[in-house]
Nucleic acid binder design. Structure first.
Length: 933
RNA sequence: GCCCCUGUAUUCCAACCGGCAGAGAAGAUGGUCUCAAACACCAUACAGUGUGGGUUCGAAUCCCACCGGGGGCACCA
């Protein structure tokens, strides 16, 4: 049979599948990848890395879906695994943990579909993921794993919620402080309650006042209601076209009573601290955009007895404000509108209505009927006059007040002063409604339209001649001095909507008493365990039914909702909060729990936090040393996690003020998909290529497209298949070798064989394929080979430090190819090669390391270090260019002086120069010589 | 519309501060092994760097414009 012809001891998939589980079992039994803590239960003074410099590397933990992993998912995990294996060998105490983000909509939806409890399906999915990850040989400290759904974990999620609830933001010190300090300030009179004095307030009034300052608070406000999902959503979970990110259902603005988190209080710090982070610039940009900080001024415009306050970033242009615009929903609209149109009202302003009230009603109806998309798509500005005139505080000018849907109720004050000369939108509106345009910034000659650039102020009285920056500052000073306004900063960021009408999430540690106000449960009552219910499905509605009312699954469980508790003033009846926390809650702080996963006294022991995540020098933000994940979490998870971390920092629970010091976005593995002539997706594995065209069943032509890997495209390849066909090491090497970690690339199963051939060559270097004997001897290397070895060591270290795994592997292949044809196989080269390969192909390396006569694991063996002597070249070959073309090469000693090199080079190109006198001779040390004639 | 990233052999990708365009992999072609094939091994070929300008002794690399691909933002006052 043909089997007998494959050498018995060749490195094949079958051999890999024998070696790999064996080493995985060894690592697990010996706790090889356990990292010692400085304090507590996980401390271990006998550990080889006890007291070593630390390195905390983390992946964005997965959401264990029912579908399991495909080959794209572990790309980042293999990257961090290779990096941490290297760093561990290089002497670091490496923390590389893995957990599971298991609460949330998909698990719940899957559970509803299959009729199984989400706890059951989640546990099964987590188990499956763990097995898949283990099969890849990922070196996690498995004592530190958890799922966010574990009551021991979400106990602390609830605990953090209580910290947030029991805090307020003190703008004077720009930080969160315990709520007791606010109560004390009111009591002692250092802070004055608005309206009536604190002493005269009833207990309920006092609670309401305090509740209004908490960082977690209940508010009745317009929120994103998604009937199709049966829950409200955070702004971050709604797409720009007003649909749910998950499920793509319509989202409606509804005023509902919901939990909010005061993330806006941290807007400044969330923007400013981005500068301390080593993050990809696009991600920082997305966060800045999302937070949307604008500096400018609030300006008060009197309208009769009322005052309209606007926000503007251009107070310097106030002299050019020729009209005002309010959002249609603005609360002053009805108050300022007179009963009838003023005399001489431009017919274009009235929308054809008989009275301002009629015009306003009609316009509001028109605006409400438009979707966001329709509203922004139409370039033509619409609006209607309110009939009212306001007074421009700088020059007393009487200017008309309009409503228009290009002004958004939710941003700034929902009102603007319109300066058509310097704002494109205002210009467009002014053209439609024939409003005057006054330029207040000198535009370049022949400039048409709104000028938004730099220039000196004109038509602006005392500001004339000043630049934009100076004019802004002077105008703000003037406004403040005369009581017409003040400097202000606004944010696009809204407070975080924190409650969901879902079952599968963390319950709030909150009950309500007879006043209907929230009462925090004491820490001793945590965790509030998610109760078992018969019906965990959410109440969903017709996706278009905007008027439906949310209903929480937990509210159905009456015997849980109504509870008798003693919260310090005797046994009383309370009602539990029945909303649950959003999916993001558990991932907002998990990086901290890895540090001290079993601590039941504290979120994390301060010594352990300071060691793993504390600032490393003055001004350092601290945090995880390397955090790897997809760019899709650029705003959601990464913004929320930063916010919670800052609250914990302010309250003294952590020493780092940012959770993730360095962020790296890995690329995606994409895959080809194929459609037949009808446009139906066909299974990718059945497609064959022939001369650049693609066929299925040998006859039918199909057409290739490029996209994500997924069930619906029938192009999923799983790591399990890869392990079976090639082994985990080959799969790992392939994923790391196919390109830089941050580049998206296509998956190509047939190319995997290249990585297998490489590992086979390494194996063959050590082991005789026919006999299984070790072929390695102790003879020294040829000097040239030794130099190559040390160049490789230096290069591989540098590449690994920079996460350039693909080029590191290329260098290892190169070294292997140098060693392969040599008559003798020297230990001097093979041992470093095996050690350098071990981050990528750990099982194979462990196996060979054992065969080379070492006992135990190589995980703590020193990573090879290049000998600087060996990196010095014995001679340098200089290419010699004449007029930019290489004409000759000269070999000189590395110690040769510039003059010697020049002389040698000129001699070498003597025939080309042919007697002409060189105009210029450039010697670039160590590089080349350039001769110009 | 604005902003960011990106364009190198058939394909995925290298090329550090501007200095000989090629490290690695796949595929192709030819060969060794084999009765034959597969595996494995050996060898060979394949681009002047999207286009057009500029700076420079010298440009894939720096600058400008345009074209193509990817991403973000988009009435945010």
């Amino acid at each position: 049979m043909s089997e007998s012809e494959t050498p018995k001891f060749r490195y094949t998939a079958a051999l890999a599948n024998e070696i790999e589980p064996r080493w995985q079992a060894y690592w697990a039994e010996n706790g090889t990848f356990q990292a010692p803590n400085p304090a507590g239960e996980l401390a271990d003074p006998a550990h080889p890395r006890h007291g070593a410099p630390k390195l905390h590397v983390q992946d964005m933990f997965p959401y264990p879906s029912g579908a399991g992993l495909h080959v794209g998912h572990p790309l980042g995990y293999i990257g961090t695994d290779s990096y941490t294996r290297y760093k561990r060998m290089a002497g670091f105490n490496v923390l590389h943990p893995m957990g599971f983000d298991a609460f949330g909509l998909p698990a719940e939806q899957y559970a509803v579909q299959t009729g199984t409890h989400p706890a059951v399906t989640t546990a099964a999915n987590v188990e499956r993921y763990k097995n898949q990850l283990r099969r890849l040989g990922l070196a996690y400290d498995d004592r530190r794993t958890f799922a966010t759904t574990d009551p021991d974990y979400y106990r602390w999620t609830q605990w953090i919620f209580l910290q947030v609830f029991n805090s307020w933001y003190d703008p004077a010190v720009r930080k969160a402080r315990p709520i007791d300090s606010l109560i004390a300030a009111y009591e002692e009179g250092s802070r004055i309650a608005p309206g009536r004095p604190w002493a005269e307030l009833s207990p309920v009034e006092r609670r309401k006042l305090i509740d209004d300052h908490r960082l977690a608070y209940v508010s009745e406000a317009p929120v994103n209601w998604c009937p199709g999902l049966g829950t409200v959503l955070a702004n971050e979970e709604v797409t720009p076209d007003g649909r749910s990110e998950r499920g793509n259902y319509p989202v409606f603005q509804r005023s509902l009573k919901q939990w909010m988190m005061r993330i806006t209080a941290f807007g400044d710090r969330l923007v400013e601290d981005l500068d301390t982070l080593d993050w990809p610039e696009p991600v920082k940009m997305m966060q800045r955009n999302w937070i949307g900080r604008s500096r400018g001024a609030h300006v008060d415009f009197p309208v009769g007895d009322e005052t309209i306050t606007v926000f503007t970033t251009r107070p310097d242009t106030l002299f050019g404000a020729t009209y005002m615009v309010l959002a249609p929903e603005h609360e002053l609209v009805d108050k300022i509108a007179p009963a009838s149109w003023p005399a001489d009202t431009n017919a274009k302003w009235t929308g054809g209505a008989d009275s301002p009230a009629a015009a306003i009603t009609a316009y509001r109806a028109e605006a409400a009927a438009k979707t966001d998309e329709q509203r922004t798509e139409g370039k033509e500005k619409t609006g209607v006059f309110t009939g009212a005139y306001a007074t421009n505080p700088v020059n007393g000018a009487s200017i008309p007040v309009f409503i228009a849907d290009y002004v958004l109720a939710g941003y700034g004050t929902g009102a603007i002063m319109a300066v058509p000369g310097q704002d494109e939108r205002d210009w467009a509106f002014a053209e439609v409604f024939e409003l005057p345009i006054i330029r207040t910034v000198q535009a370049p000659a022949d400039f048409e339209g709104a000028y938004t650039g730099e220039g000196v102020a004109i038509n602006s009285d005392w500001l004339d001649g000043k630049g934009v920056v100076e004019a802004k500052a002077e105008m703000i000073a003037w406004l403040e001095q005369h009581g017409h306004g003040r400097g202000a900063t606004t944010f696009r960021l809204r407070d975080w909507l924190f409650s969901r009408q879902r079952y599968w999430g963390e319950p709030f540690p909150i009950v309500y008493d007879e006043t209907g106000l929230p009462v925090a449960l004491p820490e001793s009552m945590l965790p509030v365990v998610l109760p078992d219910v018969d019906d965990f499905s959410p109440r969903t509605f017709d996706p278009e039914d905007a008027d439906s009312e949310p209903e929480t699954p937990l509210s159905r469980k009456k015997d849980w909702v109504n509870v008798e508790l003693d919260l310090g003033d005797g046994l009383k009846t309370y009602t539990r909060e029945t909303n649950t926390m959003p999916q993001w809650a558990g991932s907002c702080w998990y990086e901290l729990r890895y540090l001290d996963p079993h601590n039941d006294k504290a979120l994390v022991d301060p010594d352990n936090e300071a060691y793993w995540m504390g600032p490393q020098r003055d001004g350092d933000c601290g945090g995880v040393d390397l955090y790897v994940g997809g760019v899709e979490h650029a705003v959601l998870h990464l913004l929320y996690a930063r916010f919670w971390h800052k609250v914990l920092y302010d309250l003294g629970h952590v020493s780092s003020f940012e959770p993730f010091r360095k962020l790296f976005n890995q690329g995606y593995i994409q895959a080809y998909a194929y459609r037949d002539a009808r446009g139906v997706i066909v299974p990718a594995e059945e497609v064959e290529e022939l001369g650049g065209r693609y066929y299925i069943r040998n006859t039918e032509e199909v057409f290739r497209e490029y996209g994500k890997m997924g069930k619906s495209l029938k192009n999923v390849v799983t790591p399990d298949e890869m392990c079976e066909q090639y082994g985990a090491d080959t799969f790992r090497v392939y994923e790391m070798a196919m390109g830089p970690l941050d580049v998206s690339r296509p998956w190509e199963t047939r190319a995997v064989v290249g990585s297998q051939r490489f590992l086979q060559r390494v194996w063959r270097l050590v082991i005789d394929e026919e006999t299984g004997a070790v072929r390695v001897g102790d003879e020294p290397l040829e000097p040239a080979v030794r130099k190559h070895l040390h160049r490789t060591i230096a290069g591989v270290r540098e590449d690994l430090d920079e996460l350039r795994f693909n080029t590191a592997i290329a260098k290892l292949i190169e070294l292997t190819n140098t060693l392969t044809p040599l008559p003798a196989v020297s230990r001097e080269a093979v041992e470093p090669l095996v050690l350098m390969l071990s981050p990528f192909a750990p099982h194979l390396a462990e196996e060979l390391w054992g065969k080379l006569g070492h006992s135990g694991t190589l995980a703590y063996s020193a990573f090879p270090v290049a000998d600087p002597e060996q990196l010095k070249a014995e001679s340098i070959t200089y290419p010699v260019q004449v007029n930019g073309k290489v004409k000759a090469r000269v070999e000189v000693s590395p110690t040769a002086t510039e003059d010697e090199v020049r002389e040698a080079a000129l001699a070498a190109v003597d025939d080309v120069v042919a007697g002409r006198t060189p105009k210029k001779v450039i010697v670039v040390a160590g590089r080349l010589v350039s001769v110009v004639v």
